[in-house]
Design a binder for these strands. Structure first.
Lengths: 131, 131
DNA sequence: ATCCTGCTTTACGTTAACGTAAACGTCAAG
DNA sequence: CTTGACGTTTACGTTAACGTAAAGCAGGAT
């Protein structure tokens, strides 16, 4: 029993460690919490972060890099650990997944287009240079 | 000479037509102008838009869909019709292109990652559903 | 006991990207 | 010649995503 508690005691982090590791400010971390994107444990008044929170933070930051607003990011990552008990809920989640996929694929088309233009433009520049 | 002027008279658009076509407001169009992203001709006090402006607007909106800030979008599309006269300028433009490409490819990695996760998540949901 | 360090809340400030009047010019139609 | 229908400038309002003090608690070191 003693070894069990030791082995299963999962690691936690402070807000400073989290901020440091993800290269953001504590203010930003709390802001994400205010918007309901993460909800760390409270020990008394102090925030304690678990692996779950780190996972969500990684998703948040990737969402930001992709240019999504925080509110939208929230609905997305909430989707990932939504209760998928009843059949109706599962079906709802599946439709949401489809919407998300459509959005992401549209973005990828834009992105590939931009990259393609960049390539042909570079070719023109190199041609000018070789002149 | 008469046919020449008729044939070469290039088409122009009003701000209302532009806004309509791109599904944005006239206010947004003027905002982009204030930030120097487009610079339509002036006939007296009135704005006259040419094909060039439409091209830039398309680039602006795609940049927005990709989540870039307008200031950054400006530097990007300015790059496209920067003067590439002197060799030094061409070389500068080429380095800029490389930076842009790196940025876009990083985004694509994020995007593909997100899509992959979505796919495995969907599989889990479908499995749950088939239970 | 006090001091420092880290954490907390509260609250006002800031930047970006427009929205939203307000108030005025203009030109073709009635 | 007076409406409209568009166009223009000026300017203040709004939302998102934090930044930036300010002021206070809490626990370990001296």
């Amino acid at each position: 029993m003693a070894s069990r508690t030791v082995l299963e005691r999962e690691q936690t982090w402070t807000i400073a460690q989290i901020a440091e590791e993800f290269a953001i400010t504590h203010r930003a971390v709390r802001h994400y919490e205010e918007l309901g994107l993460i909800s760390p444990e409270r020990r008394g008044t102090v925030r304690v972060y678990h692996r779950r929170d780190r996972t969500r933070l990684a998703l948040i930051l990737r969402g930001k890099r992709l240019g999504f607003p925080l509110e939208e990011i929230r609905t997305i990552i909430d989707l990932y650990d939504a209760p998928r008990g009843r059949r109706s809920q599962l079906e709802y989640v599946l439709t949401q997944i489809d919407e998300r996929r459509a959005d992401l694929e549209a973005r990828r088309r834009d992105l590939d287009e931009a990259l393609a233009e960049l390539t042909t433009f570079e070719a023109r520049c190199r041609a000018d240079l070789a002149r």
